[in-house]
């Protein structure tokens, strides 16, 4: 164990090109999918929080169910859609980073939407009474709401990022873990481990954990701000 760990550190220090490629592909995927999920999930969550229509409750419950969808189920659905028999086969998304990003967006958007909905439902009733009471218009109210939500939005983004970087089920099914193309940190750990290359797997594990740690520290600091600011 000790030996593996030392070797792993040496590997990280040696700038192994395969390692670098894996980290690059991972970051590209994570930034893309968490950003896309944010851009889709925040407006959707805001819509759920601010509107009142029949079936709204049902959509919120459905969204919460999607939040806990096992990644392999998402991977399966995307695989079927993207593969030779699927209706999206013409887009050639199977075994591409774009395909992986789409699968992850399906997984992360409900989380972003639910976080946004919960947060806004908490502040909006009083906020709206207050701004309306002062005669402030829609755009001013919207601006103030966004300002009130800024820490929440950043921390929601990072939660999505953390989910993306740690996810393996959907990504391995849709991406296929092709070296230098779709192999990301989680799939690489799986493959190196099954081939007995524990030090390389460990090297990636260390990088992954470090990134997760950084992200979670930021989320923690922000969530403290969110609470503090209430």
């Amino acid at each position: 164990m000790h030996n593996i760990f030392v070797k792993a550190i040496e590997l990280i220090a040696s700038h192994d090109p395969e390692l670098i490629s894996i980290v690059q592909i991972t970051l590209k995927m994570c930034f893309s999918s968490s950003l896309a999920a944010l851009l889709l999930g925040v407006p959707f969550g805001a819509f759920l929080a601010l509107s009142r229509f029949p079936g709204r409750r049902a959509i919120i419950v459905l969204n919460r169910t999607l939040m806990s969808m096992p990644p392999v189920v998402c991977g399966l659905i995307c695989y079927i859609l993207f593969s030779g028999v699927g209706s999206l086969r013409a887009l050639e998304l199977l075994y591409t980073v774009t395909g992986m990003v789409i699968a992850q967006v399906i997984l992360i958007t409900p989380i972003v939407a639910a976080n946004t909905e919960t947060f806004l439902s908490g502040i909006v009733p009083d906020l709206r009474e207050t701004t309306k009471g002062l005669g402030l218009g829609f755009s001013k109210t919207l601006g103030l709401t966004i300002l009130e939500s800024k820490y929440q939005i950043v921390s929601t983004y990072l939660v999505g990022f953390a989910r993306s970087i740690a996810e393996v089920g959907a990504v391995s099914m849709v991406g296929g873990a092709i070296v230098y193309k779709t192999n990301v940190m989680t799939t690489a750990i799986m493959n190196y481990t099954s081939r007995g290359n524990f030090s390389k797997a460990m090297a990636i594990g260390i990088i992954l954990m470090t990134m997760s740690l950084i992200v979670n520290i930021i989320v923690h600091l922000l969530s403290e701000r969110v609470v503090d600011d209430r």
Partner: peptide, 10 residues
């Protein structure tokens, strides 16, 4: 102008 029972502090 209206001051609600519960006021939002921005």
């Amino acid at each position: 102008a209206y001051m609600p029972q519960r006021n939002h502090a921005f």
